[in-house]
Design a protein around this nucleic acid. Structure first.
Ligand SMILES: [Mn+2]
Ligand SMILES: [Mn+2]
Length: 301
DNA sequence: GCGGAAG
DNA sequence: CTTCCGCAACGCGGG
DNA sequence: CCCGCG
């Protein structure tokens, strides 16, 4: 087994099993770690200050995976954690907060492929500053159908003077992130999203659904307002995904969404760097754009 | 990926 | 000594 | 209340 100690910003990180294959495509743990190092300028500013849920694939994407909320005992002392008393049981969970490059590299070496992140920042855990419009296609509904539905979401947001930011999930669907001032609770935000989704379902019932039970969603794009719930996480932009081809959750322009001639697989560990060089970081505006969700909420009965 | 328990 | 096992819960909404 | 859901 290869083992290599690297020094990053005064911190020592031990990298192990660098040659281990993580994707059947041949991408290794070294590729995984290098990806997050190279992408860190486009990742750290967004996941900073937020609780991080580890989703780990120590035997690659075909092996057994597990989630881990609580930072293990052996976590380096320079990794920032945030203690939260879990509701039901009186147990403290020390969530990881990935605020710097050494932490991101350590997480990658722990075989964390994905970035599962809270929608609220740690100082205001009940007040999300990102509202999510989560669009999940159920076959035979296609990614193209999802893009069509996303355009309806954009048009609805336009009418409220709100700007949303679309991205591939890296799996089959699409996310629209709406940066807002953290002034409403998850429950309030969720009601607003549900309201907008119900409008979309009313104008496009053939291809959309808000049904809870999975078997009633076939052939529709599921409008998943439930993601706006405390304790739920989203796969953030530029996260790798544990799927063949090592896809990346990739920010899109609305022109690309409108044109509709893209597939999630087009955006992956290979194509993301040339793309960023070309289009830049399309999510940059969300860092400072605090929109108000109040206008939409006044319409919710 | 890793520590601790079980075999 | 080797192998096995755990690593997340939680809140929502419909019936 | 339980169950399915993500
Ligand atoms: Mn989704
Ligand atoms: Mn979803």
């Amino acid at each position: 087994m290869t083992c290599q100690i690297v020094q990053i910003e005064e911190k020592e990180v031990r990298l192990t099993n660098l040659e281990k294959e993580m994707w059947p495509d041949g991408y290794t743990k070294a590729d995984l770690i290098k990806y997050y190092v190279d992408m860190s300028p486009y990742i750290l500013p967004y996941i900073k200050n937020r609780l991080f849920i580890m989703s780990r694939y120590p035997d690659g994407i075909t092996g057994k995976m597990f989630y881990q909320k609580d930072a293990p005992e052996y976590t380096p002392e320079w990794v920032q954690t945030y203690p939260l008393v879990s509701e039901r049981e009186n147990k403290v969970v020390n969530y990881i907060v990935c605020d710097d490059l050494p932490t991101l590299v350590w997480l990658a070496n722990q075989a964390c492929i994905e970035l599962h992140i809270w929608m609220a920042q740690k100082e205001r855990l009940d007040y999300p500053d990102i509202v999510v419009f989560d669009l999940d296609p159920f076959p035979p509904a296609t990614f193209k159908d999802t893009l069509d539905v996303a355009m309806l979401v954009k048009e609805a947001l336009d009418r409220f003077g709100l700007q949303g930011y679309p991205k591939t999930s890296g799996s089959t669907g699409l996310h629209i992130f709406l940066p807002v001032r953290p002034e409403f609770t998850y429950a309030q935000v969720r009601e607003g999203v549900r309201f907008l989704f119900e409008h979309i379902h009313a104008v496009y019932p053939e291809k959309t659904t808000l049904e809870r039970s999975i078997d009633k969603r076939a052939g529709k794009v599921y409008l998943d307002y439930g993601q706006n719930t405390r304790g739920h996480t989203m796969t953030f932009h530029y996260s790798l995904r544990p799927h063949p081809g090592a896809p990346v959750s990739t920010p899109l322009t609305w022109d690309e969404v409108r044109a509709g001639d893209i597939e999630p697989e087009d955006f992956n560990i290979k194509t993301i760097f040339p793309r960023i060089k070309k289009v830049g970081d399309l999510y940059r505006p969300i860092l400072h754009q605090e929109q108000s969700f109040a206008g939409l909420l006044t319409l919710v009965t």
